[in-house]
Simulated assay, not measured.
Amino acid sequence: MPFDASTGKEKVAVLYRMVMPEHTCPYGLKSKDLLEHQGYRVEDHPLRTHEETEAFKAEHGVKTTPQTFIGGERIGGYDDLREHFGEHVPGEDETSYRPVIAIFGVAFLMALAFSWAAYGSVATVRAGEWFIAISMCLLGIQKLQDVESFSTMFLNYDLLARRWVRYGYFYPYAETLAGVLMIAGAATWLSAPLALFIGGIGAVSVFKAVYVDKRELKCACVGGSSRVPLGFVSLTENVMMVAMALWMGIRALT
């Protein structure tokens, strides 16, 4: 039986959540799991019909479920519960580098895996090339999920897109195609100029927006719903494309 060390009393939480044949509230399940993880015995009260749910909300003056009560005090929904336990709950407009960390981290591991499979070693030049090329593909996928949304965000800072709106629709396909060709080491005559073109314009656009105009914007690099701030990461993406394009082009000519 779990006890609160500061009071010596049993740690009990009362949880009301929707559990219907057609819908089990995922936040209710998360709330129950969080409470149990925090050492609480959960008095679980499933709300099994819409009528029962609406009656509960009217009785307690709340608009949503689940709702958690601890020591007779209403804590609130899942996010409120996380805040109660000292966990960080990101705000709607809060920036986050998590998407780019995930993309570049996975790209790096994939490049090492490719290198090991092909050469029996992770310490190869090709691993570095694959890292950049795979990163381009993964970033392209993020944009291709919603090209319309990406192009809208892209228009906030890209110099060419502002003059030629259709460039915002072209960019995700160009980045992905260049990345795929670079992974294969094929058609360098196309992939290198393509990456050089979009990477060069992108680098200049980001540098102007962030470091010259001092604008605070969200980066479209991981898609139109991105909360990644425009800045160093965005500039790095474009510089990597330029560097890869120059490297592949020089290697093809030698």
Rank of each mutant, 00 (worst) to 15 (best):
Met20Gly: 01
Leu177Trp: 09
Phe85Gln: 06
Phe114Glu: 02
Gly185Cys: 03
Phe232Leu: 14
Lys63Asp: 13
Asn156Arg: 12
Lys63Asn: 14
Gly200Asp: 05
Gly199Gln: 01
Arg126Gly: 10
Arg215Met: 04
Thr7His: 11
Thr7Lys: 14
Arg41His: 13
Ser226Val: 13
Gly8Leu: 04
Asp93Ile: 00
Arg48Val: 01
Phe232Met: 12
Gly77Leu: 04
Thr68Phe: 09
Ala107Glu: 07
Gly200Met: 10
Gly61Leu: 14
Val147Trp: 13
Thr152Pro: 00
Val89Trp: 03
Ala252Asn: 08
Met153Thr: 07
Phe56His: 08
Tyr97Pro: 06
Met136Thr: 02
Asp158Met: 14
Ala118Glu: 05
Glu43Pro: 04
Glu36Thr: 14
Asp4Val: 15
Met182Val: 08
Gly72Leu: 07
Glu175Lys: 11
Pro21Gly: 09
Ala13His: 06
Val125Phe: 15
Ala174His: 06
Trp247Asp: 06
Ile103Lys: 11
Cys137Gly: 01
Tyr157Gly: 04
Lys30Tyr: 03
Ala118Ser: 08
Ser96Gln: 11
Val165Cys: 05
Leu181Phe: 05
Met110Tyr: 03
Asp33Ser: 03
Phe108Thr: 03
Ala192Met: 01
Phe232Cys: 09
Lys208Phe: 06
Lys63Ala: 15
Gly105Leu: 13
Ala133Ile: 15
Glu36Met: 14
Phe104Glu: 01
Gly223Leu: 07
Gln145Leu: 07
Ala102Val: 12
Thr236Phe: 11
Phe108Glu: 03
Leu35Thr: 09
Phe154Tyr: 12
Asp33Met: 04
Leu194Asp: 01
Ser151Glu: 13
Thr124His: 01
Tyr171Ala: 05
Glu94Pro: 00
His60Val: 07
Ile250Phe: 13
Leu29Lys: 00
Val19Arg: 04
Val242Glu: 00
Glu54Gln: 14
Glu129Trp: 13
Gly128Asn: 05
Met153Ala: 13
Ile198Arg: 04
Leu230Met: 12
Val14Met: 04
Ala118Arg: 06
Gln38Ala: 12
Arg82His: 03
Cys137Trp: 02
Asp44Cys: 01
